[in-house]
């Protein structure tokens, strides 16, 4: 028990320092940005003194870095300047994040499932009888998934509309509510967005490779060999021992998913944290930009910490390594 607590404390320390490092990186980038959003406001000159003081826009880069860092540490992101003037950033981020979570959570889960299914189909873990076509199919799908998310979203939106339009024109289909994606808010749009988020930008390719390595590593462990020698079923055993590697894979994949989220939300015209981030960058709304970047970084480091903590609790090799 003491060993577990010690390992958890070390992981927590690593989590805190990494989070602080990521927030510092965001603060440094922000401090180096020339100009500010106050010029973009209609009454900018009158508000300059107040907003400069409020957002630490006065002083040299070092002061700005420290100011942003300390505000981020207190989770005080202030108010939006241009995207939604005067609205508290925390509120804006909260509602946007809730909408994005509806895309992100199924996409993260589906990525893991698709990765492991693809790896198992391709023969990793050697559970299925050898086949010449399965690895080829997985390779073809994986190559297809290398398509950038922006093109996948574009192709999906235009493809759906191009397929539906002739049917509507010939009166074989009454204009469905999901037609003219991306303007319509409909489950079809969310479903397509989740699929693009799951598969595009090499997500599937990455998942298959990581899952393949994981399955091969597990299949080579002595307890799997012993079970195999006894003639017992291997699949349930592998599934039980996949929890920790799957959590680690999910945490490692999260930054890539968050990047793709910005593109997919823009491509499908969906409101959410990704869309808000892009909008705030374009309109130089620094409080929102910094707030979302910090929240994204904290989300990633938290996911990593949770995966590490699961490993400490459930994987005896982690504790043995520490001992």
């Amino acid at each position: 028990m003491r060993l577990v607590l010690r390992a958890l404390a070390l992981r927590a320390l690593a989590f805190l320092t990494t989070t602080a490092g990521a927030v510092l990186l965001v603060s440094v980038c922000f401090a180096l940005v020339p100009g500010d959003a106050i010029d973009a406001l209609p009454n900018g000159p009158e508000l300059r003194a107040q907003l400069e003081g409020e957002w630490g826009l006065v002083g040299g880069p070092a002061e700005r870095v420290l100011g942003t860092f300390s505000r981020a540490g207190r989770l005080d992101f202030g108010h939006s300047l241009t995207v939604s003037p005067g609205a508290p950033v925390a509120e804006l981020m909260g509602s946007a994040a809730a909408r994005s979570a509806r895309l992100l959570a199924p996409a993260a889960l589906l990525s893991l499932l698709a990765g492991f299914a693809g790896a198992a189909l391709a023969g990793a873990g050697a559970e299925l009888p050898p086949s010449p076509w399965r690895p080829r199919l997985v390779r073809a799908l994986a190559s297809l998934s290398a398509l950038p998310a922006v093109l996948a979203a574009l192709a999906t939106v235009n493809g759906v509309n191009a397929l539906a339009w002739p049917l509507i024109e010939s009166a074989r289909l009454t204009r469905p509510v999901w037609f003219a994606l991306p303007e319509t808010d409909h489950p079809v749009r969310s479903f397509l967005a989740v699929i693009v988020l799951t598969g595009a930008s090499g997500s599937f390719l990455w998942g298959v490779r990581r899952a393949g390595d994981t399955l091969a590593d597990l299949a080579a462990r002595p307890f799997v060999g012993a079970e195999r020698a006894r003639g017992g079923p291997i699949a349930p055993l592998l599934a039980r021992h996949l929890v920790v590697p799957a959590a680690r894979m999910g945490a490692a994949h999260l930054p890539l998913l968050l990047s793709a989220l910005v593109v997919v939300e823009r491509g499908f015209g969906m409101p959410g944290a990704g869309s808000l981030f892009w909008e705030s960058c374009g309109r130089r709304d620094w409080p929102v930009t910094v707030g979302l970047a910090v929240v994204a970084a904290v989300t990633v480091t938290t996911a990593r910490f949770v995966a590490d903590a699961l490993a400490v609790v459930f994987d005896p090799r982690e504790r043995a390594a520490l001992a």
Partner: peptide, 24 residues
């Protein structure tokens, strides 16, 4: 590795956009 972990914690597109905002 801790320093690299801090960089990878910021999603790549977010980091690239922040850098492009700073540099142009």
């Amino acid at each position: 590795r801790g320093g690299l972990g801090a960089i990878t914690a910021v999603p790549p597109l977010v980091l690239a956009l922040l850098v492009m905002m700073a540099v142009g």
